[in-house]
Design a protein around this nucleic acid. Sequence first.
DNA 1: TTAGGGTTAG
Length: 629
Amino acid sequence: MLRLFHSKFNGRTLLSHPPKPLLTFTFLYYPLFRSSLVSETSLHFQAISSYHCDPLLSNLLVALKSLSSVSSCRVVHARVIKSLDYRDGFIGDQLVSCYINMGSTHDAEKLFDEMSHKDFVSWNSLVSGFSKRGHLGKCMSVFLRMKSDLVFELNGVTLISVISACASAKASDEGQYIHCCAVKLGMMLEVKVVNALINMYGKFGCIDSASRLFWAMPERNMVSWNSMVAVCAQNGIPNEAINYFNMIRVDGLFPDEATMVSLLRAFENLHLGRSVEAIHGVIFTCGLNKNLTIVTTLLNLYSKLGKLIASHKVFTEISKPDKVAWTAMIAGYAMHGQGKEAIEFFERTVREGMEPDQVTFTHLLSACSHSGLVEEGKYYFRIMSDVYRVQPRLDHYSCMVDLLGRCGLLNDAHCLIKHMPLEPNSGVWGALLGACRVYGNINLGKEAAENLIALDSSDPRNYIMLCNIYSAAGLWSDASKVRALMKAKNLNRNPGCSFIEHGNKIYRFVVDDHSHPDSDKIHKKLEEVMRKIQEAGFVSETESILHDVDEEVKTKMINKHSEKIALAYALLVTSADVPIVIVKNLRICRDCHNTAKFVSLIEKRVIIIRDSKRFHHFSDGLCSCGDYW
DNA sequence: TTAGGGTTAG
């Protein structure tokens, strides 16, 4: 791979598209617009509008799109109507986009209905606005109105907006319908339309459909290739991503920033460490280490692969890290349960003059939660709005419920949910349910699970958690009712599996796995290790077993969990001085967590397990999570 | 080069 990169990129820059220069007008007035002061915006608008110059007005509205204030948009709207009848035409279209971008679909629809001369751009502004804001229903209904009533023909822009909305909402039926429309309208020769469809099928997990579309294209561009690399990356097939990457030259094209970012992301879920290091080498050699987007992806990738030191090294080599890069480091520390370091980094971020935003606070609060830093978490939750004017979103409430719940403050967590100004989502209730399971609170757990099931009755995890709570309390008949409900709804538990890399290969183990050629040896090793740690005081915790069977059977079942098999395999094939790295697709159970702690002590090994939520570094009988997870 | 669209970072 290294050779490939050298042959392709030697002496060339990969940044094929330098950023477009901002319009001078927008640039000059940007600080003003950022201030969100309606009166000032209005004042300057007055000065500008006296020129009666259309491009300036248009540029003003482009700049206004960066605001989040509906009221400032209304000021402009009022003046447009009052002084210059610009309600129709491109100013009206821009205002429609502005309103939707700012979250006021009501204003947008009202203005749109008032516009007497609507052309296809007006309609497309509405469709694209709804698409960007994630209003699939409204997007579809405008599209259907266009399709049935309109004198204008639907064009590629219309279709792309609706396709994009279907992709974001993972609306498979609607997406396939739009695909049929595109075929009927003869749009399948438009590269951008097909690119949007490829991206949509990728989001649905339909890799075959995406690749069939891709290979049927009479003409492909860089976005087409990047879309396929992204499809493979998003669907966890890194080798295919590399294949597409290697084939880009077939069309005489060169990888750009988006290609590299997608390629790196392809390795997020698998420990192909050497491949990542090879790509890193190339990024450095080709001078791509000056590209903030690529480097931030790289440092984030190292964090996700358990290599926090490498991640930090990448960060220190960035000459001018931006807010995203700082936040990526905070996220890295949060993921690894290093809450104090995350806080330190946050304070440095602020000292460096960066303005923390909602994402920064999400990771900071998550770091506090993962490290049991309750007072610190409460403090930052308070000052995020008081000092930094960042209004808490659902993510932040989830973190706070998690933070309070993990340390047993279940009533405080419940109280926060009851008094939060937003409608709690599955993240918020899920955090409470997780805590109820740990602390065996049946009443609150039931409430959380019922809310979760009401929000999404098709997610098996909600039923499993409720079942766990009943099982742990010995309420077997309630547990079996939940199991029966799952069966009636045909909901299957996502099977747990663990991955481990050895000899440049990835091995996957499921529960009670016997597929490996050395399976007998692995299971013998597992039995030996379990015996050793039991002699040292380890006691099985069988609460995660859902079935009403006796303890002996439960112990046998839990001793065959995939992460235990992966651990036994690693003990067999790796040398003692190498850390053992295991990736689990679900959350690690309490019993496997205890097992890893004991094994790290008895076998004197460093064990790193990444579960679906975070990293656990085991050493000398302790875990970096401090048993908060 | 005045308006609407497809890929990529926390």
